[in-house]
Design a protein around this nucleic acid. Structure first.
Lengths: 132, 132
DNA sequence: AATCTTATTTATAACGATTCTAAAGAACTG
DNA sequence: CAGTTCTTTAGAATCGTTATAAATAAGATT
């Protein structure tokens, strides 16, 4: 069980539910984007397990806090998460309401010429909205 | 009343409430960021009027649709609006939970090297998160 | 101005996403 | 195994937002 150690090392007990969610989230060739509801359905299908919605919330937030997931900002009512935790950017397709990754190397270097006294930059995220 | 024509030209009836909200939103030297709750309080103080929360929502959304306000994406539970509708970017101060504008000219040109078949770029927004 | 029509406001109910709660169950420690 | 702590769970509670339907105001028509 490849996730047991990873969880334990993060101070999270490797429970059955967490391990199952790990399977769904991290046992893929490609990273992907999801909403909580989205993920809850995926879990119900992918495994034939019923994990309580509260647990899905708990787990996703725990994983986010540990840095295994990233929350993504789009001005919509939906909250998206990303299993790709590396620095990168996004397209947001306004018609299909879907996210698409943009590799860092596919965005020219971004120079922020303005500085704020006493603050340092934690991240720079580019969101490119697409329409037909 | 300087907003009456503006509203009428947008197909919005210049009601007392809308005109009052226009005062609060657009009668300022500087543009600013706000949340709905935020704005509702400001209205209650600035003017001594009590506008129904539903009307504040309606009006803000109407103004947004007409392009007089911009919604801003940050991954937090709060929905921000901006009275600055020109193309620009933002700092988000994670500690103070506050937005700061970045003029377009303070961000070097952004090259998006990836293209999506059949889609065109509607906007490019940069969000720079700040910490202490 | 009186009347008609349509848009707007309003309080409140309804909603959906998320969080909280407290009890039951599972994981860890010695 | 016994004791402790963490996790899961269903359901209640909460929060921001949207829908509802009646009252009101604006605009158009006469």
């Amino acid at each position: 069980m490849k996730y047991i150690e990873k969880l334990r090392n993060s101070g999270l007990r490797p429970t059955k539910q967490r391990l199952q969610i790990c399977e769904v989230l991290f046992n893929n060739k490609e990273t992907f984007h999801f909403t909580i509801n989205n993920l809850a359905k995926k879990i119900k299908k992918s495994l034939n397990a019923k994990i309580s919605l509260a647990t899905v919330y708990n787990t996703v937030h725990a994983f986010e806090k540990k840095g295994y997931l990233k929350k993504i900002s789009i001005n919509t009512d939906q909250t998206f998460f990303d299993t790709n935790t590396t620095d990168h950017h996004h397209f947001y397709d306004l018609n299909e309401e879907k996210l698409i990754d943009i590799k860092n190397s596919d965005v020219g270097p971004i120079k922020i010429l303005k500085k704020i006294e006493g603050k340092k930059i934690k991240s720079v995220e580019v969101l490119v909205k697409l329409e037909d």
